[in-house]
Amino acid sequence: MRLLGFSAFAAGVALLPVLFPDNYFVTVVGVSAGLHVILAVGLNLLMGYAGQISLGHAAFFGMGAYASAILTTRYAWPSLLAMAAGLLAAGLIAWLLARPILRLRGHYLAMATLGFGIIVHVVMVQATDWTGGPDGMAGIPPLNLLGWEIDSDRRWYGVVAATALLAIWLSLNIVDSRIGRALRAVRGSEFAARMMGIDTTRAKTQVFVVSALFAAFAGGLFAHQQAFVSPDSFNLLVSVELVIMVVLGGMASTFGAACGAIALTLLNEGLVVFEDYEMLIHGALLMTVMIFLPQGLFVGLNRLGRRLWIAVLSRHGSPPQ
């Protein structure tokens, strides 16, 4: 079932540019959606499976992006090496932060991660000599994969789509692994999990680091793809948006998070034509979905579909199982 879903998803992603070659909504919006998928799937590991909220995830996204931006433009590092350095930095900071911060629960954890996000954002704005300040940094070279320059929208679509699928696949595997089971136990009841001999601190730290790595990786791709970074792309609103993606799609479901990411990207892109009405519609839609499908789009629609299917089957005489 899982493999089937994944294959169907991958086939869809691969077919899109063939069906609509050089279409803005496929190549440009698709890249943006793909990056969001990586971010949301990573955050879902932390939120959906370990039950830990983060309102500062944009900070890790930003670290990855700025590492690439600074190292390639100021020190002329090759892009892959810069991305690796970004992963290392974000992973290290996440690891250092995990122990004190994951002792907190619920709203206090939300507050602490939010504070962390704000601190990182302030540094991006103020450390002008390093980060270029609020205007950001331009002129970041394209990604160079061992001599293959990723410099057109279609190539970017290919790279981001492939890595997004890889992220989904990784996430599915993590969830089914020993760590994944430990995490779900933590989510159910941390105390009970500890009683059963699960090293909950270790499990939570691991997932926090993995989730930060996903974000930093997306950040590195983002920097090379946009050729430009500025602090606006990594502020609190972005962190909140990521949380919305995960919840909108359906927590504790990798495909749910991916769907949420794609849905919200398309929504933002589609609503701009409404100009001043954009906010009103955005807010109303968000509320409506969460009120009527509190489990999220993916889970909710799946269930709805199944119910319809059963209704159709029973009308045709074959009893539902």
Binding site: N23, Y24, V28, G136, F228, S230, D232, E275
Partner: peptide, 21 residues
């Protein structure tokens, strides 16, 4: 026209949209 809200990231994607779409 598109509203960037003063966010450079949106400016990048909207300029692409203007040029390509």
């Amino acid at each position: 026209h598109y509203d960037t809200g003063g966010n450079a990231k949106d400016a990048v994607s909207f300029s692409k949209r203007l040029i390509k779409n």
